[in-house]
Design a protein around this nucleic acid. Structure first.
Lengths: 187, 187
DNA sequence: ACCATCTGACACATAAATGTCTCACCTGCG
DNA sequence: CGCAGGTGAGACATTTATGTGTCAGATGGT
């Protein structure tokens, strides 16, 4: 299992593969401090490795989504968007490379997993409810609201990974930018 | 040249390569309605093709940046961020796959072109000026301001390309989300 | 009608990556 | 100490992709 000594970490493999989709098995092995023999012993084919990474990333994302009470989002008309989504954003950012792997799944997988489509649909439904309660701007599409939120989350993670954004500032930057925008309110 | 009959379009090649970084020369040829023979005749090596795409994308991006008067951005204290950046955002979105190619350059090129770093630095300088004039939120870093703006631009383009966002709504969605956020102002 | 030029299919040589297997060595446990 | 189990280096076979060249056919210009 992943916690076996010297067992190549799927998360580390994901991290490397996301930035180097064409990396060879040899390069992947080196990147995770292992050997090609060990990788092949664990994953007889390169596709087996990619599938394993995708499965683990998908499970992680499903756990994050299951943690949210998205059916309850924006049912209280006074609910504040920033407060409502802060936990979700924080947990997404903490997924790190696995999140990016799912987002860039089209680079690795022939089909986008239906579970992803289902979660996206649920998120969009919740955001539409927010638009109806007046918490979210009804002039923007729910598809855009969801896509823009995820875009900012992914960018925050990339900035953190590159050392250009402090981890403790990540959630605040995403939430502030998405909810309030980056301009200062007119006086 | 690129306008010769049946000449494989670098923009089309870029569009395919961005979503399929590991595509073979054969797959690329099919994707642009040509043949592997013709591709090899134009680009003796795969790296020649990638370099040509990168060069053209970089030129396109430099033209967009040259079009902006970024040194003049936010020098007028009353300048509105949305108005200031609308042209830039519109032109970026119109770059389409070439923009995405530059953004995902790390997938294809060994080094990020210094021209890109220079443009990013100029953009960040302009955004810091906006923070000093009070137009932009000083609690967020200029690096984040630039990264978040580009993230929304890229996402808008992806949504347009996927048919999930009307082209005419792209600039407005980006500008509104980035400048004002997606929540409706408190009454 | 002829010719120059280009394309795409195909064959072939070369290079690169994958997949399989062996073996010496290391580690941890009894 | 001996043994079971795992690792990593390396060799080798296979597969895949690249790179090169040829040729029939198409196209456009004269």
């Amino acid at each position: 299992m992943a916690d076996a000594p010297d067992d190549p970490s799927l998360a580390d493999l994901a991290a490397h593969l996301v930035h180097h989709p064409s990396a060879t098995m040899q390069e992947l092995a080196v990147a995770v401090g292992s050997s090609r023999s060990t990788l092949h012993r664990r994953f007889p084919r390169r596709d087996d490795l990619v599938d394993a990474i995708a499965s683990q990333a998908l499970s992680a994302l499903e756990r994050v989504w299951a943690d949210q009470d998205s059916n309850g989002w924006f049912t209280d008309p006074s609910a504040d968007a920033a407060t409502t989504l802060r936990g979700y954003v924080t947990e997404l950012i903490e997924l790190g490379p696995q999140l990016l792997f799912i987002v860039r799944a089209s680079l690795f997988l022939p089909e986008t997993p239906p579970e992803i489509a289902a979660m996206d649909a649920e998120l969009e439904d919740a955001l539409r409810r927010g638009q109806r309660t007046g918490a979210l701007d009804p002039a923007l599409s729910a598809v855009w609201l969801a896509a823009s939120l995820h875009a900012l989350v992914f960018t925050a993670w990339e900035q953190v990974a590159a050392g250009r954004l402090a981890p403790r500032d990540a959630t605040r930057s995403v939430i502030t930018t998405w909810a309030k925008g980056v301009t200062t309110p007119a006086r």
